[in-house]
Design a protein around this nucleic acid. Structure first.
Lengths: 126, 126
DNA sequence: ATTCTTGCAAACCCTTTGCAAGCTA
DNA sequence: TAGCTTGCAAAGGGTTTGCAAGAAT
């Protein structure tokens, strides 16, 4: 069930999650995986991120309020970050332009320490 | 051709763009529209944004380097904004966590003045 | 004639959904 | 039994691509 998601520290797509569940022997169909993930996301239990390819990636969300992420684009490892300065900046900018009903996305992508090293190693081999 | 895109001040999906082109009498197929948009995006001529539904939206980019947007989620109208403070903040946060090869997305969504009014009107009618 | 561009339709991928079967209360 | 959960397969929606016809050089 959704218990499995609890262990997920990183962002995974529903398809990846399904694969992981299968590997662990859990008998869950893709459809059900999608259903679980969707309902959890609706309940605000998961953070959602859209990859550049349009695939949605989810992550168990510790935090309660509004926050952002520093995500490794290679392994999905994520660090939750807060950005009070950015929040204020966003509100100000929006107000200056007369925009209302605000929302914003602030995500930083990069390579985590491990993946930075891994990639560097790959390059030196070539 | 791609000339048509020049007039686009706002973010549109490829499908919308195709519809617009058709209405103007241009005979372009959906496939070609996708091809044009994709190549322009590859050349950095367009800004790309992913909607929550996974649809990609493009906008003619004035092309002066890195910048962000304040986008109306109803009509797509966008204002280009700069955020030196945020850039610095992002670099710092990432560095503190040992992340490299950074990239970040900072987009503010809301309702532009016109749409704010329109929505308010709709509500008062109900 | 060679090369690039276009359209069409089929293929892809992620995601959602109808429906019948299995559980649960 | 009434109601919710699940799996399967089909359908949906956006996007890409193989291939043959047409335009450009």
């Amino acid at each position: 069930m959704s218990d499995a998601l609890d262990e997920l520290a990183d962002f995974v797509s529903t398809q990846e999650l399904h694969r992981i569940l299968q590997e662990r022997g859990a008998s869950v169909s893709l459809a059900t995986t999608y259903r679980i993930v969707q309902s959890m996301a609706d309940d605000g239990l998961l953070d959602v991120l859209r990859a550049d390819d349009g695939e949605a990636r989810y992550r168990r969300c510790e935090a309660h309020g509004h926050h952002h992420h520093l995500v490794c684009r290679r392994c999905g490892k994520a660090v939750e970050i807060e950005a009070p300065t950015v929040e204020a900046w966003a509100s100000r900018i929006a107000a200056e332009n007369g925009y209302t009903a605000l929302e914003h996305t602030v995500e930083i992508f990069g390579l985590c320490p491990e993946c930075s090293a891994a990639v560097a190693a790959e390059h030196s081999e070539e």
